[in-house]
Design a protein around this nucleic acid. Structure first.
Length: 293
DNA sequence: AAAGGCGTCAACCGCGGTTCC
DNA sequence: GGGAACCGCGGTTGACGCCTT
């Protein structure tokens, strides 16, 4: 994958560049042009050697950042749509500050952009600051408001987040369920979280699937999507034919295998109905924003 | 009109993970 | 197996513009 340079002589991490020789701060249009022109013609190669080759007096890291966060042709500029905001809220509730993972679900948006947008726009819309569990240490002193989500739900959300985190960081080879844990367990927790509850209550969902009380969702090796009661035996399960799962639009039968369970968890969370109670506060504050495209 | 406060966002920094030798 | 080289990520900083007083 990566080409080796000359063998290093020093122990420890090397500086990524000679600080005295590189320019810092805002990029000029001329620098942007040099960067884009070079990458268009040659690709970026190794970022470390890129500045020299492209004729830039910048750190390779700085070049990479400029390209990935700003100059890349597939970057989507402009205001975030309501749907994008929903996606960010939903994923953040489960993943915390995993901006790169969140960004991977929003084509054209960068992790840096989402992170900034969250910090400057979205975070303040959360009724209860503790929803930002990943950054809880920074928000410990934040005021708690009366319309906060129930504590039990917050605990569940955090639990689901941790589990999703763990799954996302897993080696794909280990995605098969742990022996002592049902393969759907972490998924179930997301389902049973406040977010999942909102999803379960949705009219759209219930029109497609008959959800039993205390329902949870599980997955099987076969390409069907199954809803079952907690602790239900196999014969209590009700199967959904793939073509019936039209609610999501994103659930292709192929996605229901265990190896993609993390994606399915995210898909489920992303599939909240727009009128779900869980995200009502999102709409509430967006009126004065008027930034949607 | 000027000064200070605040919000936004591009860019930087440092660390962890991965790959290669 | 260990160290070096590199990349990517998340947290933080700082410049700039807008708003308020």
């Amino acid at each position: 994958m990566k080409k080796r340079g000359k063998k290093g002589k020093k122990m420890g991490r090397l500086a990524c560049c000679e600080k005295s020789e590189v320019k810092k701060g805002a990029w000029t249009p001329e620098e942007d042009k040099l960067l884009v022109d070079y990458i268009t013609k040659n690709g970026h190669g190794t970022w470390r050697s890129f500045p020299k080759l492209a004729g830039l007096r910048r750190c390779g890291k700085s070049c990479r950042l400029r390209w990935t966060n700003y100059l890349r042709p597939d970057i989507k500029r402009g205001a975030f749509s309501f749907e994008e905001e929903q996606t960010i809220f939903q994923l953040h509730s489960v993943l915390g500050n995993k901006w790169a993972t969140v960004a991977s679900r929003l084509p054209g948006r960068t992790d840096n952009e989402i992170k900034n947008y969250w910090n400057s726009h979205l975070r303040k819309r959360i009724p209860n600051q503790s929803t930002d569990l990943q950054a809880s240490s920074a928000s410990k002193s934040a005021d708690t408001k009366s319309n906060s989500l129930p504590t039990a739900h917050m605990v569940e959300l955090e639990s689901a987040r941790v589990e999703a985190n763990a799954k996302l960081s897993m080696d794909p080879i280990n995605l098969s369920p742990p022996k002592d844990l049902p393969n759907c367990d972490y998924f179930l927790r997301a389902w049973n979280s406040a977010a999942g509850e909102s999803f379960q209550k949705s009219k759209d969902f219930n029109s497609v699937i008959k959800v039993e009380s205390d329902s949870v969702v599980t997955m099987q090796a076969d390409p069907t999507f199954t809803v079952c009661s907690t602790g239900a035996s196999a014969d209590q399960r009700c199967k959904i034919e793939p073509e019936e799962a039209t609610n999501s639009g994103s659930y292709s039968p192929d996605s229901y295998n265990v190896g993609k369970s993390s994606d399915i968890t995210l898909d489920l969370l992303l599939d909240f109905p727009n009128d779900g109670e869980y995200l009502q506060y999102l709409k509430g504050d967006s009126d004065d924003d008027s930034s949607y495209t």
